[in-house]
């Protein structure tokens, strides 16, 4: 092969690899998406999982929230008002998880909008499927606000988006 052609191929290869690298560069959107997907992984439990593993997952899930995080899910869960603070959220997770056998949580249609150097909004749908032959399936749309603290993206506020307007107002 001609020396010039060989060099051209090498240059094209390097440019191609560079382009692929640039496409997959770790942007803030990608980092946030990874956090959201990680939350779904932490909230997924198999039937055979022991208590220690479950507690570790809840701990990991809880640590993805900011210290002053707010959870506004009273529209979809039997909770009277918003939950404030990472510890309160962890407490709720600790209370609810032992009752669950196996559950698979997935996130869909994650749309990330970075609104500032340390702020971002996420719109997404989360689905949960419990085990069993006629396993229950539920899905919920969420609006999430993220904040970057010490280089880490944390959940600052979660709002459950009501899909349907019921009598008595939204």
């Amino acid at each position: 092969m001609n020396q010039g052609v060989r060099w051209l191929l090498v240059v094209l290869g390097v440019v191609g690899l560079g382009y692929l690298g640039w496409l997959n560069r770790p942007t803030e959107e990608r980092r946030i998406r990874k956090v959201i997907e990680g939350m779904a992984g932490d909230a997924t439990f198999t039937g055979g999982e022991g208590n220690i593993s479950r507690i570790a997952k809840i701990e990991s899930l809880g640590n993805r929230f900011a210290v002053d995080a707010e959870l506004h899910v009273d529209q979809v869960l039997p909770i009277e008002s918003a939950l404030t603070g990472r510890d309160a959220i962890k407490g709720l997770l600790m209370m609810g998880t032992p009752q669950i056998g196996s559950v698979e949580v997935k996130v869909h249609d994650v749309q990330v909008t970075v609104t500032g150097d340390t702020e971002a909004r996420v719109s997404m749908t989360a689905s949960a499927k419990t085990g069993g032959k006629r396993g229950d399936f539920t899905a919920q749309e969420f609006d999430i606000r993220m904040v970057k603290t010490e280089g880490k993206w944390l959940v600052r506020r979660v709002d459950a988006v009501a899909g349907f307007r019921r009598s008595g107002g939204r």
Partner: peptide, 11 residues
């Protein structure tokens, strides 16, 4: 079918 945040999961 009714969309949620997108069309991956529909009511």
């Amino acid at each position: 079918a009714v969309r949620m945040a997108g069309e991956s999961v529909l009511y």
